[in-house]
């Protein structure tokens, strides 16, 4: 099965990386210069992986950080960070300059995040272990990422359907997380909300809930460099601006700004 990887540009340049990795027959991803696909097995067991030259990550899950567009010097919060794919991706885009707070409610999952931070050699990530719904008020974040815990219906790893009750419970959590994230955002800041699930309850309705409770929240129209669909919630105000897409997994994504 094909996997996708992202170069660790903090550790190695693209030219040298491609020379070293030539035995894995990498195919470039045209819309993301740092990403490649490969059918090779055991990339994760290679010397280059242990040297921290790349990170294995699904293509779909690379998109939220591209939409967030973190830059060197930004103060970024990743509210549900473990195992760390997006936090480390942020740090790379920021050239390891600025602040990335990688938060996760699970202490055990923070360990996995820590191992990736170490292997990739990142010094600008601070890890925290708060319930995101109660993340403490600090100096406002210019950028926030909420890749929310969800029913993962769009994930290739998902094998079991969820009950309606479970989805309602997740939607309640997601709404609460998004409200808290928005309140932590600096004026004119950007918050990207994403899930790897397909239910309207966990996607469009979560965004609608935010808009109904925060007058200064605005959903920005998104354009992605590959095929995508608009929202399916039945609310044209939201549907026209959010995106649903499927690369290797099905994702939902919304970009929100604070007026």
């Amino acid at each position: 099965m094909a996997v996708s990887i992202r170069i660790n540009n903090l550790r190695i340049g693209k030219k040298e990386f491609l020379e070293r990795m030539s035995r894995f027959s990498l195919t470039p991803v045209e819309w993301y210069g740092q990403a490649y696909k490969s059918d090779a097995e055991s990339l994760g067991k290679s010397l280059e992986y242990q040297l921290g030259y790349f990170y294995i990550q699904s293509l779909s899950s690379m998109v939220p950080v591209l939409v967030l567009d973190p830059k060197p010097g930004d103060m970024v919060l990743d509210m549900a960070a473990a195992p760390g794919s997006k936090s480390t991706q942020c740090a790379m885009h920021m050239e390891d300059k600025g602040v990335v707070v990688a938060n996760d409610v699970s202490y055990m999952r923070l360990k996995s995040l820590a191992s990736h931070v170490d292997r990739l050699g990142i010094t600008s990530i601070a890890m925290t272990n708060f319930d995101g719904q109660r993340f403490p008020s600090v100096a406002p974040f210019s950028k926030i990422l909420l890749d929310a815990p969800c029913s993962s219906m769009g994930s290739r790893k998902n094998i079991l359907p969820h009950s309606e009750g479970r989805i309602r419970s997740l939607a309640k959590l997601q709404k609460s997380l998004l409200l808290r994230g928005f309140d932590l955002l600096a004026p004119a800041g950007t918050l990207v909300y994403s899930t790897c699930t397909t239910t309207v309850e966990e996607n469009e309705q979560v965004i609608e809930n935010l808009l109904s409770k925060r007058d200064n929240a605005k959903v920005e129209k998104l354009q992605l460099p590959f095929a995508f669909e608009k929202g399916l919630g039945g609310n044209s105000e939201v549907d026209s601006d959010v995106c649903r897409f499927t690369l290797d997994e099905s994702f939902f994504i919304a970009k929100i700004t604070k007026k």
Binding site: V99, I122, S124, A126, V138
Partner: peptide
């Protein structure tokens, strides 16, 4: 741990860890 001093701007008291081991 070695960490970027940019993290000192954070002002958060309870941090699990900063930077890399």
């Amino acid at each position: 741990y070695v960490y970027s001093k940019d993290l000192e701007k954070l002002g958060l008291r309870w941090v699990h860890r900063r930077g890399l081991l």
